[in-house]
């Protein structure tokens, strides 16, 4: 499933440009300690995190993740979105909690 299709299906808001939306989702991961995520998440994951610091983009690029999802409508720092756009990483936002998102994404895949 493509990032764009998941965003549509779950009614998530797309905070970044077009570029990252065509990536193929291969799995998912949830975590907020970036050092942990860096050593445990996988290529192609959609990553759910409450961290909104620009470093999340670097982690997503490093691991070649499909996209980042920010739960509970947390506002994302402008500098994070700028970095996301320049690196072609889609950042999606949802009113759901990480728990609810996991269940919905798993069911959708």
């Amino acid at each position: 499933m493509k990032v764009k299709d998941l965003a549509d299906k779950l009614g998530m808001k797309i905070l970044t440009g077009e570029e990252g939306l065509e990536k193929e989702i291969e799995g998912g991961y949830t975590g907020d300690l970036l050092s942990w995520v860096m050593s445990h998440a996988s290529k192609g994951d959609v990553w759910i995190t409450v961290q909104i610091h620009p470093n999340i983009i670097a982690v997503a690029v490093l691991l070649e993740m499909a996209a980042i999802i920010v739960p509970e409508d947390i506002p994302v720092e402008a500098s994070t979105l700028e970095k996301a756009n320049s690196e072609g990483i889609a950042v999606l936002q949802s009113p759901d909690s990480a728990f609810e998102l996991c269940a919905k994404i798993k069911a959708a895949m």
């Binding site: 300690l33 970036l34 050092s35 860096m38 961290q51 610091h53 470093n55 670097a58």
Partner: peptide
């Protein structure tokens, strides 16, 4: 480092 992976 633990929270953000590296120093921004």
């Amino acid at each position: 480092i633990n929270a953000l992976g590296f120093v921004p």
